[in-house]
Design a protein around this nucleic acid. Structure first.
Length: 740
DNA sequence: CAATTCGGGATCTGC
DNA sequence: TCCCGAATTG
C-alpha cells in the first residue's frame, strides 16, 4: 500500500474525522459505520502525516478483543503502530500502576481481584454475614469506585443510604491494601489518584501522551472520565468515539452522560457524525431506529444504509418456547437450502436461561451450535482454584487466594485453623514463636499468610490439621523456590515511562516455560484428582480444562515475572476459551455479548413484556432496554427475525405473556408478520374473568373481583375468603383457577 | 471437619 | 425448575 492509498477507502465524514485537528473530537459513530477503520486510520495518519512518535499516542478500548483488533488493523496500515499503546482501560491502568507502584503504596507484583475475590475479602471481616450479603456489599463498593467515590466522599450517599456503608467500604480498603492487591475499580482509580497528587508523574505522562483516543466511549464510567481528564490535561488532543444508542452497561456504572455532555465538559470539541451504515439493509435499520428513536436521552442521529432495500424484518408470533426454537430451526434450514451455512445464523436472547430450549432442540435434530459466554473459562471452579494456588505462590499476602486453597482438596484445615493462621499473620509474629523454623530471622512480614501458616502449623489442635498444613506450606515453598529468589521490594524503576507494552516473551525451551509450574500446581496440590473424581462426565471436562490452563501458561517464562504476567493476562482477559471458533455452528448468544459482532441472519427472541423489556419500568431502565433492542437488530446484515411467545416456561411454571411494547413501537408497514398480525402492545386478559374461583398458595381460596389488562399481562383483584382483597399480576402470582 | 439435606431466590456482566 | 448456600448431622 503506497502512502495515501489508505485514505482512499474513506467516505467524506470518515476522512474529516481522520484529518481533524484541534483540541479534540467526538465521533458519533452509528452501528456498522466503520468506526474501527476511522480510529486505526487516524493513528496511522498521525504517525505518517503529522510525524507523531507512535509512543506518544494512547488508544483505549473496553474489551481485549477490540484492543487486539485495533492493534492488528493499525499495524497492517502502518507497522510503527506496534509501538503505540493500545490497551483496554483496565490493562492501561495496570500498566501504569506497575510502573508507579510505590506512589500508590503497592508492590509492583500485585494481583488483580475480581468481584468474587472482593466478596471473599468482605466475608473475611464480616464472617457473621452470609456470602450473598457480602456480595451485595462488594458490588456497592465496586459501584462507588465506578463513580470515583472514596470512603470519605460526601457523594457516597448516592450509592446507598445504608448508614454503616462508609465504614464497611473503609474497612474493605484497609483490608485490600494489606493483601497488596487491587480490584478492578482500583485499576482506574489509583492511576487517577497518582496523577492528581503527584506532579512529577503527572508531567511525565502528559509530556508523553500527546494524543489520547477512546473507543466505545458510551461505555465509560465516571472514574474513567476523570482518569481521561487527568491524563489529557489541557494540551493533549482527545478523540472519543462512540454511539450513545449502544450504551448498554448502565448496571455496571457506564454513564451515558459522559458522551452526551462530552463537548461541554471538555470544551472546544468538534463533532463528526458517521451515519452511513455499511452492514445492514435499510429495512433492518428502520426497525432498529423506530424503537430507539423513542428515547429522550440521546443525541439523535439517523442511520442510512449503503445497501438499499432488503427483505422486511419478519415478526413471528409463536405458541411457546418450543415453537420458538422450532421456528429458529426452520430459519436455519432455509438458509442452508439457499447455500448458506450454520454459522450464518445467530439466535439472540435477553437472558441466559432462554438458551436451554434452543440447546435441547438443536441437540436433538443434530444442528451444530455454540453458546457464547455463558460460563467463561476463567470463572470455572477448577480454574479459579488453580489460579488461586498460583496467586499464593506469587504473593503470600493474598488472603483471598489463601483461604480458597489452603483446605482444597480437604487437608483437615478447617475454619478454626484458618482463623488462627489469619490472626497470626496480622497480629502475631514477634510474640508467638517468630523464630519457628523456615523463616529467616528478622524478616517478619505482616500479613504474609504462608509465613504465618509455617509458624502456626505446630500449634494447631488436631494432628490432621498440623500435618495437612505442613504439607501445604511445604508445597508452596518448593514451588516458590523453583521460580528463583524473591526480588527486593521497590526495585521497579518508577521513571520507566518509555517502555512500550510489555508482552510476554515465549521461552525458547519448553522446559523453562511457566507451564511446568502450573502443571506441578495442578498435580501436586491434588486439585486435578479432586476435580476429576467428582461427577463422571463433568470430571473429565474439568480435568481437560485444567490441562488447558497448563497449555495457556506455556507462553510465559518460568520466573516470578512470568507468573505475575500470566496471572494478569488471565485476570484481564476473561474471554479466553477452549472452543474451536472455526467450526460451522449456529451461534446462541445473549444480546449483551453481541456488541461488535455481525451475522448474515439474526433472530431476536423472547420479545415479551417482562422479559424484553425486562420490567415494565420507565425512564432510564426502559431507555437502556431500547438501546439493547437497537444493538440486537443492528447485528443483522441481510435478514432479521423477531419472535415472541404467547406462553413461556418461567421458573418451572407456564406463564401467559404479552408481546413486547417494542413491537408496538415499530410501524406496521416496516415489518412482515409471519403466523399472525402485528399484535397491539399488550392488552389481553387471557383466561381471567371476574367471578372466577381461584386458589392462592399463601392466601387460600378466593374469587376474582376485577381484571385489568396491562403492559405486563392481566392484573387481577382477588377477594379471598379471609376477607383480604389483593392485586396480582397473573404472570407472577401463584394463582390457580379452580372454576367459576 | 465433611457429607447431606433443606429452603430461598432467580438479569445483562466489557475489564 | 434448578442451583447455591446454610444448617444439620455423622
Amino acid at each position: 500500500m503506497t502512502t495515501g492509498d489508505y485514505l482512499a477507502m474513506l467516505n467524506p465524514e470518515q476522512l474529516a474525522a481522520v484529518r481533524h485537528e484541534g483540541r479534540g473530537l467526538l465521533i458519533l459513530a452509528g452501528a456498522g459505520s466503520g468506526k474501527t477503520r476511522v480510529i486505526t486510520t487516524k493513528i496511522a495518519w498521525l504517525i505518517r502525516e503529522r510525524g507523531l512518535e507512535p509512543e506518544s499516542i494512547l488508544a483505549v478500548t473496553f474489551t481485549n478483543k477490540a484492543a487486539r483488533e485495533m492493534q492488528e488493523r493499525a499495524c497492517a496500515m502502518e507497522p510503527r503502530c506496534s509501538r503505540t499503546i493500545i490497551r483496554t482501560f483496565h490493562s492501561f491502568g495496570s500498566w501504569f500502576l506497575r510502573r508507579n507502584a510505590r506512589a500508590a503504596g503497592l508492590d509492583s507484583s500485585f494481583t488483580i481481584y475480581d468481584d468474587d475475590d472482593s466478596t471473599t475479602l468482605v466475608h473475611g471481616f464480616l464472617p457473621e454475614k452470609t456470602r450473598s450479603e457480602c456480595s451485595r456489599i462488594a458490588s456497592r463498593i465496586a459501584k462507588a469506585k465506578d463513580f470515583a467515590l472514596a470512603p470519605d466522599s460526601p457523594g457516597l450517599a448516592a450509592v446507598t443510604s445504608e448508614g454503616d456503608f462508609r465504614r464497611l467500604y473503609g474497612d474493605y480498603e484497609a483490608r485490600l491494601r494489606k493483601t497488596g492487591n487491587v480490584d478492578f475499580g482500583d485499576l482506574i482509580l489509583l492511576p487517577g489518584r497518582i496523577l492528581a497528587e503527584n506532579e512529577a508523574i503527572r508531567n511525565r505522562f502528559r509530556q508523553r501522551f500527546r494524543v489520547v483516543l477512546v473507543d466505545e466511549y458510551q461505555d465509560s464510567n465516571v472514574a474513567q472520565f476523570e482518569l481521561l481528564r487527568l491524563l489529557a490535561g489541557d494540551e493533549a488532543y482527545v478523540c472519543v468515539v462512540g454511539d450513545d444508542d449502544q450504551s448498554i452497561y448502565r448496571f455496571r456504572g457506564a454513564e451515558v452522560r459522559n458522551i452526551l455532555t462530552f463537548p461541554d465538559t471538555f470544551g472546544g470539541i468538534d463533532v463528526v457524525r458517521l451515519e452511513r451504515n455499511y452492514r445492514s439493509y435499510q429495512s433492518i435499520l428502520d426497525v432498529a431506529g423506530a424503537v430507539v428513536s423513542r428515547n429522550e436521552g440521546r443525541l439523535g442521529k439517523r442511520l442510512v444504509a449503503e445497501r438499499k432495500g432488503g427483505r422486511k424484518p419478519v415478526l413471528a408470533t409463536l405458541a411457546d418456547h418450543d415453537e420458538e426454537a422450532a421456528y429458529c430451526a426452520r430459519v436455519v434450514e432455509r438458509v442452508r437450502k439457499a447455500g448458506g451455512s450454520y454459522s450464518d445464523v445467530a439466535v439472540l436472547y435477553r437472558t441466559n436461561a432462554q438458551s436451554l430450549a434452543f440447546e435441547r432442540l438443536f441437540a436433538r435434530i443434530k444442528f451444530p451450535y455454540r453458546i457464547v459466554g455463558s460460563v467463561r473459562f476463567y470463572e470455572r471452579e477448577e480454574i479459579k482454584d488453580a489460579l488461586a494456588f498460583l496467586a499464593v505462590v506469587s504473593n503470600g499476602r493474598d488472603e483471598v487466594a489463601f483461604r480458597r486453597v489452603v483446605n482444597k482438596p480437604a487437608r483437615g484445615v478447617g475454619g478454626v485453623s484458618v482463623q488462627a493462621i489469619v490472626d497470626e499473620a496480622y497480629f502475631g509474629g514477634t510474640a508467638a514463636g517468630g523464630t519457628a523454623d523456615g523463616e529467616l530471622p528478622g524478616i517478619f512480614e505482616p500479613g504474609n499468610l504462608v509465613a504465618a501458616a509455617r509458624r502456626a502449623a505446630g500449634g494447631l489442635t488436631t494432628a490432621r490439621a498440623r500435618s495437612g498444613l505442613a504439607a501445604f506450606v511445604d508445597l508452596v515453598d518448593r514451588l516458590g523456590a523453583s521460580l528463583g529468589p524473591k526480588p527486593v521490594a521497590g526495585e521497579v524503576d518508577e521513571g520507566a515511562v518509555g517502555d512500550t507494552a510489555a508482552l510476554p516473551v515465549p521461552p525458547a525451551d519448553p522446559e523453562r516455560s511457566l507451564a511446568r509450574l502450573v502443571e506441578r500446581v495442578v498435580m501436586e496440590s491434588g486439585l486435578r484428582e479432586y476435580h476429576e473424581s467428582g461427577d463422571e462426565v463433568q470430571g473429565k471436562q474439568r480435568a481437560a480444562n485444567l490441562d488447558e490452563l497448563v497449555n495457556a501458561a506455556s507462553d510465559y517464562g518460568l520466573s516470578r515475572d512470568g507468573l505475575a504476567q500470566f496471572l494478569e493476562a488471565v485476570e484481564l482477559d476473561r474471554a479466553m476459551t477452549i472452543r474451536d471458533p472455526d467450526a460451522d455452528a449456529v451461534t446462541l448468544i445473549t444480546i449483551h455479548n453481541t456488541k461488535g459482532l455481525e451475522f448474515p441472519v439474526v433472530i431476536v427472541t423472547g420479545l415479551e413484556q417482562g422479559l424484553f423489556p425486562r420490567d415494565d419500568e420507565s425512564g432510564e431502565d426502559l431507555e437502556e432496554e431500547r438501546r439493547l433492542f437497537y444493538v440486537a437488530c443492528t447485528r443483522a446484515k441481510d435478514e432479521l427475525h423477531l419472535t415472541w411467545c404467547r406462553r413461556r416456561l418461567f421458573r418451572g411454571k407456564i406463564m401467559e405473556s404479552a408481546p413486547s411494547r417494542f413491537l408496538g413501537e415499530i410501524p406496521r408497514e416496516a415489518i412482515d408478520t409471519a403466523g399472525g398480525r402485528l399484535p397491539a402492545p399488550a392488552l389481553s386478559t387471557g383466561p381471567w374473568k371476574p367471578g372466577l374461583a381461584v386458589y392462592h398458595d399463601d392466601y387460600g381460596p378466593g374469587c376474582v373481583a376485577q381484571v385489568k389488562p396491562t403492559g405486563s399481562g392481566p392484573l387481577v383483584i382477588v377477594r379471598f375468603e379471609t376477607g383480604k382483597q389483593l392485586r396480582f399480576f397473573t404472570r407472577y402470582a401463584g394463582l390457580e383457577i379452580v372454576g367459576r
